[in-house]
Design a protein around this nucleic acid. Structure first.
Lengths: 155, 155
DNA sequence: TTTCTTGCAAACGATTTGCACTTTG
DNA sequence: CAAAGTGCAAATCGTTTGCAAGAAA
């Protein structure tokens, strides 16, 4: 069940700090800022969106640091990376329910759909010689809006 | 059942030609060359690998044309694009059985695993207001080789 | 003959890197 | 104080684009 704990859940912050200590990394204000801002999203976001949001809230964190920190957050299993398409890598909270991502090949919009059976199946599944930490499912196709538009313009 | 019809299956070539005509695109030798070379793969490949293979077989096709043609082949439902990670977009024959891609976050290697139940489930599933044409499933984690290495070096 | 393709090279844009400066432990 | 992290700007690299020349229709 995806709880809507907006803003820095102390749980995630603690987890991150623990991860950093364990890996002999330093606790810096920038890292906390990035984490907190990232957790405000209830949907997937891009590095660029995260940077903009940080700028807008007046907290200055350089782009390079954001990249660096988001990478760490992925390793710490707090965020998950989704590769939707060529130029849009996106991130989301790992604790969120795992949705199916419906990607429209025309307009690029992403819709999220839940599939409990599928989740159960994937979570139960194990692989030989491989330790899985998370998975992503993307379905590519065309959304109704674009399909309608295409039909109209085509003939 | 993934048949191993190496080299240009005339079926795919015909399909491509039909697609091109339907979309008022021209039939060019370059497009055929790219298609044929792409079909030689039984695994996923990158644009770069495709270009290299074309060069090695002495057939000169410019990189831009390869990009262009592969795009067309995706639209024609002959190839499928897989977004495994940040810098590696890969392609594979669409007619191939849909495998689960196990991606190692350490070494980047991709292993393919079949899951018939999952395939059946996904193929049977339909989505509201969305017409799906294909899907990809990626599981991220760490392969045994890397896990072993990590354990050794860490402590 | 007209329009689409090709090939080249330049442009692009997200990500990475090098380096001097700052901060944490 | 030493080592790690930060910010900036430059470098990188896969992909895209503009345009002149060439080839389908």
């Amino acid at each position: 069940m995806a709880l809507n704990e907006t803003h820095a859940s102390p749980k995630a912050l603690g987890k991150f700090h623990h991860f950093l200590k364990e890996h002999h990394c330093r606790l810096t204000p920038e890292r906390d800022l990035v984490l907190c801002k990232a957790l405000e999203w209830n949907k997937h976001f891009s590095i660029d969106e995260l940077c903009q949001a940080l700028n807008e809230s007046g907290t200055m964190v350089s782009r390079a640091t954001v990249y660096n920190t988001v990478e760490l957050l992925c390793e710490a299993q707090i965020l998950r990376r989704i590769h939707v398409d060529l130029r849009r890598v996106r991130y989301e909270r790992l604790e969120k329910t795992n949705f199916i991502h419906l990607v429209c090949n025309e307009c690029g919009k992403i819709k999220e759909v839940r599939d409990n059976d599928l989740n159960a199946h994937m979570n139960a599944r194990s692989f030989t010689a491989f330790h899985s930490s998370y998975f992503t499912i993307c379905v590519y196709g065309i959304c109704n809006t674009c399909a309608r538009k295409k039909k109209k313009s085509h003939k």
